[in-house]
Simulated scan of single mutants.
Amino acid sequence: MSYLFRSLAGFLLLSALLASCRPDQIEHIKDGKKIAITLDKMVVKRILPADLLRATRWAGDSLTRHADRELRRVLSEKLQAGGVAAALPYCRPETFASVDTLERTMQATAQRRSARPRNAANRASLTATALQPDTVRRVARLNGDVFTYQRPIVLDDALCLRCHGEVGKDISTTDYALVKKEYPQDQATGYRLGQAMGIWQVTLQRAGVAEFYTMKTRKIVKPRKPLF
């Protein structure tokens, strides 16, 4: 019985001491959030082969989606400003500065390929499966240091019909004359909304894939809530 009273008394004393501590009396480590982030970066993370393939898909999606968004933004501006003549030189998102920056960060090279290209240099033999709009992204590891990513390029914006739709209907004969002058071997017309025009192909180095995986899976330290 005496033991029970002593335990109860000790508990009550500890509770009283904790209750007496005000929030402003708690000392926090200076720059604790920055220190936690730095320490997390220093932790050596084990990355499995399956993780690298998953990161290849993440990186490929991130890079090509950014390129597609930039292409739509730039073409919209150029078409509004000067029509097809102004937009035609910019239908090459793989050459945009912001895309190049991402490529260097990810140690990647992105290219567009098509069986019916506008630029003959982008011609490639593609299977029907590769061009299915709902095809799951294809990722592979060619060797210990090189990964590949592939997905279809789908014409999902009516804006693109101004240069890639049906001549005489979506594309004026005057505008198509400009296209043929710039690209004499053009085959990239006659497309409809929802149709695959080609594929994105991305080659990535292991170091870039591993770094992207680390960044994507790194624990984010949430800001500390004010004490009062």
Rank of each mutant, 00 (worst) to 15 (best):
A121M: 13
R46W: 10
V146A: 09
Y183T: 10
Q132W: 01
V84W: 02
T217Q: 09
L75N: 05
M215T: 14
R151P: 09
G198V: 07
K41P: 04
I171A: 09
R72S: 09
G208H: 07
A177I: 08
R57F: 04
K78Y: 04
R54M: 05
L39H: 15
K41N: 10
A67H: 05
T174E: 14
R116K: 11
Q25K: 11
R224K: 07
Y183E: 04
L131Q: 03
R6S: 13
R138Q: 12
Y149G: 04
A86V: 02
D40G: 03
P117D: 03
L12D: 01
L193W: 05
M215C: 14
Q107T: 00
A81V: 02
R112Y: 07
D157R: 06
V84T: 03
L204H: 06
A59D: 09
T148P: 00
F212M: 08
P184I: 06
A121K: 13
M197N: 08
F228A: 15
H66L: 11
Q187C: 04
E166D: 09
T129Q: 07
T174P: 10
T214A: 14
D68A: 15
D186I: 05
L159T: 12
C160K: 06
P49C: 02
A59E: 07
T189V: 12
Q150P: 04
K180D: 09
L204V: 04
T217N: 11
K219D: 11
L52G: 00
T135E: 02
R116Q: 07
K225W: 09
D186M: 02
G168Y: 01
L53I: 04
Q80S: 13
M106I: 03
H28I: 14
E70F: 04
T173Y: 14
D170I: 06
A128W: 03
D100S: 14
R112K: 08
P117L: 01
N119K: 08
H66N: 13
R73V: 06
K33H: 14
S62I: 02
D145A: 12
G194D: 01
A115D: 07
F11L: 06
F5R: 15
T135D: 06
G168Q: 00
R192M: 15
T38L: 12
L63H: 06
A115S: 08
A110S: 06
Y149F: 15
S7L: 12
M1V: 09
Y176G: 08
K30H: 12
P117K: 02
I35C: 08
Q195V: 09
T127E: 03
D61Q: 10
W200E: 07
L102S: 03
K45A: 14
R116L: 03
L39T: 15
I26M: 12
Q111M: 11
T95Q: 14
G190Q: 01
A130M: 10
A120K: 13
I220R: 15
R104P: 00
D170W: 01
N122Q: 14
A196I: 02
Q80Y: 13
